[in-house]
Every structure is written in structure tokens, then in C-alpha cells.
Design a protein around this nucleic acid. Structure first.
Lengths: 192, 192, 192, 192
DNA sequence: CATGAATGAGGGTTCATTCAT
DNA sequence: GATGAATGAACCCTCATTCAT
């Protein structure tokens, strides 16, 4: 696993591009709720053979995992950035809104969330850590600054937002999810 | 003679009982996250032949729909009852907690919620109406009594709770979902 | 699970016949050297759907195993019969000739033999026992009657014959295999 | 793996050497029973690209054939040598033991034997000639010297030994195969 | 009404072979 | 010459659905 990095020859530029494009197709498909999309179809939409898909991703799970990991890394990076540039509550609010944006078109986060609490799937262990760390840090800062109650469970905020974006896929759902961000933050105030 | 018996008797109790037991098996399975359980397996667990399952439910979707409708009806009934016996906010809070209880063991609600806003699946049209009416009524009463802001979208409360119960399947998730009920109501107050 | 035994109904005569016919097709195919015949093709030749094949045999290995077991049982039965009706050496000779007849058209025995000594596949444990017992008994009798040397390894006789029938599939190979039976017995005599 | 590094520097590997090494890898693999080893894997183990394998061997069959031909040539050479240095029966016995040694680790001979009699595969025509000539010559000498019966079919001796080495892959099989050489020669004596 | 054998489309995966670099 | 990415046919297996008994 780790040594793969070391050992693996530099992929041809073609190969890299294909990997990227397959990920993109998968991300889009999963995001549109086509969770059961056949791998054949992903390959077809990407314009490559099914064998090429398998060259890049050992099996269905590997592809799904890659999509997750990708998304989560972007979110984690954003958390760090926001913490450095905003006041505690606003950083949290901004990141939650970003979180909404991400899961907006890509419900891919779901399975990662799924394992946030009792997940047994070892594959998501990393993902869990990454995401938990991201919200956790922002919430801690907001607790320390006295803007939200200390008994708030960071992960639950994500779950709640995940719920909205998950169940509400129609047009106009996004503003509503963002309004929920405000409700959640308001409800989490010390006096709240 | 014979005709008398035919005419007079209501559908065999056997048939009814089987239908009920199949529903129960399916509900339990779906609730345990076994969303992809084969129909064969549902029949087997129920102790009937697969043909019997098909006698009662035309196809997989019909079975799933029946499970949904069943659950939703119970929730709707509870909403009515609570509205008659509790103060507005408390009725809402109580019903949301009940909602949590339901989805606790049965995430089956998910797909129904899924179509709450933009769903195109005609099958859930009824379900949607039922559920929307249930929360809608309770929220309206709470708005009228001035306990929550008028711009709160009832359905979003459900989505948020659905998210927690959906993503958090481990032990101890339930108290957390109920704490979220309080956060949501607190965040929905006029001054919130 | 446990109740399976209890619950299992007598297979329909249809089902039985299909199972028998699938076995027959498989036996013939394997025997003709078509060891890699796709299961699809076996189903097609039998005139049933692929699903039917899978209803009777859980997977490729299960089918192969069934064919083996079938053959071996017949051979075992023959050994018992011959021991009761022939003099020791002649019983052995007759059975070896029979063995030739069997493997003549069905190299299916190969894998079973394969595990006779160092085989690790648990599936063939039974088969091994059956076959070893069959020759073993006959050879022991011949040793006791002083017709063959005590250091003869029964299984090797089978391997040798298996080799001929395995490698020599052309016309006229059968008389040669039977001549080998005589060579082997002659070479196994005390004075030999 | 590690050898990657070693290999990498080599500016232009000698075509001959690659061919040789690929043959060696294939021989070893086939000999270990990995009859279905993917060509990818053979290339990988050899430390060359799959394309290189295809440069040397037009397709899977060509590689297999090359392995066979190689082995058979060595056996043929040994037959000539032994005939010049041993008495007839002993030359035969020695060669048969050698034959055992060869097939000991390499069951590759099997398919070649397979076509010894009725094989229709044109590719093995040569191989057949080579092998038949080798045993044939030795047996003829032994018949002429009166040490074995004239009705012995040389090829059957090989088949028998092939059977043992083929089916008996466990430890200790080799002495047994050699004991069978003696049984076969004893059983082939004129008075046998 | 109940049963379960039969069906076959379709999904995941493997691997021989080709070909652009 | 060498490389390895790409291809896709073909295989194993699952499962929703039908229908004869």
C-alpha cells in the first residue's frame, strides 16, 4: 500500500488523465444518486474500456473509496484555510456552507458519514479521521470563543446537513440547507 | 352450499397473516440496513415460498412501498393524537422524538423523504402528502402560537433528523438525535 | 438455517431430472477433455437456463465435485462386488480394467487422483478415502494371497493407468491401457 | 519489486537473454502447477513488460510450445547419450528415471504426451516425433537384446510415469515413481 | 392459495492481445 | 527493441420475476 507510491512507475500522462476522468464520472454519477451505476456504464461515459477502469481501480469498492477520499481531502483543506481567515463562528458557518456545497452535487460523503460513529468498515477509517478532525477543530474553536455550547456534538451537525442534501435533491434545496446551517448554529448558542 | 361458503367468508386469514409477516420481515431487514436483501431471502425468513411473496406484492417496489406506507400511516396517526393532547411546541417536540424512534430501527423512511421535494417517483406521491401533512400541521400550530419562526421549513426538520439516524447507526446515536431535536427547536425560535 | 433440513421439501421430479441431466452433460464434457467448458455452455447443452444449473450446483466447483463423487461411488461399488466374486488377483485385474473403462471417457478422475497424496483441497477428502479404500482392499487381498509383492503402492497403479488414459486419448488407446494392466500386475509379482 | 531497480539501469536487454528468462519463468510456473498463470504475471516475474513477452512469443500457445520443445530436446539428447554408455535395459531404466526427474518439477510434458497418439494439434507434431524417437530407440535396443518383450508399447511406459508424476505431487512421490520404473521393466520382461 | 423450480438479463471481474509511445 | 496502458470478449454468479404443479 504505502510502498506502492515508491515502487509504482510514473503513470503515462494518458493513464493519469483517464484516472482523473473516471473519478470525475463516478463522482458525478454517485452525486446524482446513481449509486448503483454499473462500472461498465462509468467506463462508457468516460469513453474508455472497462478494462481501463479496472487498471486504475482494482474493483468497485476501490473506485468508491477513491472518490470519497478525494472529496474529503478537499474539505479538510478548506477547514484549515477557513480557520486561519475567519472568526470562530463564522469559520464554522462558512465551512458548513461549504460542506453543503460539496454534498450538493455529490452525496458521496454519505458513506463516510455513515461510519462516523459506529462504522466498522476499515476502508473508511482514514476518511473518518479526516472529516472528524475538520469539523472538530472548527467547533472546538467556537466553543472556546464562547459562541456555542460545549455539549454540541460536531458530527451531528454534519449528519443533519447530510440529511437535507440527501433527502432533498430537487431544485431549491440548497438555500434551505443553508438556512438550516443558521438554525443549527442559532440552536447551538449558549443561551439557545 | 359451496358458494355460500365462498361468498360468505372474508379472505383467508392465512393470506392476511402472510402479508403481515412478509411486511414485518421486510421492515426489519430494511431497518437493519439490509437494503439490498433479495426477495428470496425475505420469503425464506418469513417461512413462505417466493411465489407467496409475489402473490401479495407485485414486485420489489410494491413491497418497499407497502413498508413505507405502513410506517407513514402510523406517524400520521401519532401527529393527530399529539396535536390534540399537547401544547404546540411540545406536540412538535414530542412528534419529532417519535419520528426519531421510528426511523431508529427503520431507515426505510429515507426513500420516501427522498422524494419529499423534487421526487418524481409517482409511487411516493401519497406518502409525501401524508408525511408533509403531519409535520406541517404541527409546525403551523407552533408558528401560530409564536413559538417558532414562520420561515421554518417543516420538512427540513425531518431531513435533519433523518440524516442523523441515517448516518449514525452505532450505539448511542439515539440520545444524540434527540438532543438535535432540541437544538433544532431552539434554533427555530423567533429570537433564535 | 437449521430448519432447512426440516423444511426442505422433496425435490420435484423435474428438478431431479434436470440435476441428473446436468451431471450427465458435465461428465461427458469433462470426459472429452473440455475441462474449461463454461457453465453457460453446460446449461445450454442440457437445454436449461444457467440459473437452473446454479440452483442445483452452487458454483463451478460444486458441479465438478458432484461429477467426481458420482464416478467414484460407482467404482467403489464395483470393487466390493468384484472382491466377492473373483479370486484376489483377478478381482484386482478386473477392477483395474474397469477403472480403465471409467476413465476412458471421463478424465474426471484426474483431480481426485491429484489429491490422493498431497492434495490439500478439502473437497476431495472423501473422494480420496473412497478410491483409496477401493484399490487398497483389492491389493491387500492379492498381497495376502501371495500374488503380488507387499511393497506395491496401490495408488500408484491407478496413477499409472490414469496417465495412459489421460495422455492417450486417441483411438486404440484402450487395449493398450489394458495391456498395461497386465504389465503392472506381472511386474508386481513376488518373483517379478 | 526490488529487482526493478536492478533492471532499470540495463540500457537494452539482450533479446536472447529475455527469451531465455521468460522460458525459465514459464517452465517454473507450469511446473509448480500454475498452469493458468496469466501472461502478465510471467512477464512481471521475469521483470520485463508484457509487450516484451509478446515480442518473443506470438501468443500463449507459442510460449507453452516453446517450453515443451525445450524440455523434450533435453530428454532426447539424454537418450542418445545413455544409449552410448549403458547396456540396453539399464539405458532404458536410467532414461525412464531421468524422465521422472524431468517431469518431477515440470508437468509440462503432459500436453505433449497428450498428443502422442491421437493428438490433432499440429504444433506438437515435432515434439511427438522427438519424444517417441527417444524412448523408441531405447526400447528397441532392449527388445533386440532380449531383455523385454517385443509387444511393449514404448510410449505407454511414459504415460504411466507421467500419470504418477502428474497425480502424485506430494512429498515422497519421487521414490514411488522410480519404484514404478522397476515394476514396469519387470513386468515387461519376456517371461514377465 | 402456496410453492419453488426455472429463467435469463445483467453486473463484477479477469486476462489475452494490441498498439502508441 | 521495450514498455505498459488500453481494450473487450468471455466467464462466473446473483436475483427479480414467471409459471407449472
Amino acid at each position: 500500500m504505502k510502498e506502492d507510491q515508491t515502487r509504482r512507475r510514473r503513470p503515462r500522462s494518458d493513464g493519469r488523465k483517464n484516472r482523473e476522468r473516471l473519478l470525475e464520472t463516478a463522482r458525478t454519477a454517485f452525486g446524482s444518486g446513481e449509486i448503483d451505476i454499473p462500472l461498465d456504464e462509468i467506463a462508457r461515459r468516460t469513453g474508455v474500456g472497462i478494462g481501463t477502469l479496472y487498471r486504475h481501480f482494482a474493483n468497485r469498492d476501490a473506485l468508491i473509496e477513491a472518490v470519497y477520499r478525494d472529496e474529503l481531502n478537499r474539505l479538510a483543506a478548506a477547514a484549515t484555510r477557513l480557520a486561519e481567515t475567519h472568526a470562530p463562528v463564522e469559520a464554522l458557518r462558512a465551512w458548513l456552507n461549504l460542506f453543503v456545497d460539496y454534498i450538493a452535487t455529490k452525496q458521496v460523503i454519505a458513506p463516510a458519514l455513515n461510519s462516523l460513529i459506529g462504522g466498522t468498515d476499515a476502508i473508511y477509517a482514514d476518511s473518518r479521521t479526516v472529516l472528524t478532525a475538520a469539523v472538530g477543530g472548527l467547533v472546538t474553536r467556537a466553543i472556546e470563543s464562547g459562541d456555542i455550547r460545549p455539549d454540541i456534538e460536531p458530527v451531528d451537525l454534519l449528519c443533519a446537513l447530510g440529511g437535507v442534501s440527501n433527502y432533498a435533491t430537487g431544485p431549491g434545496w440548497e438555500p434551505r440547507a443553508k438556512r438550516l446551517v443558521d438554525v443549527l448554529i442559532a440552536g447551538s448558542r449558549p443561551e439557545g
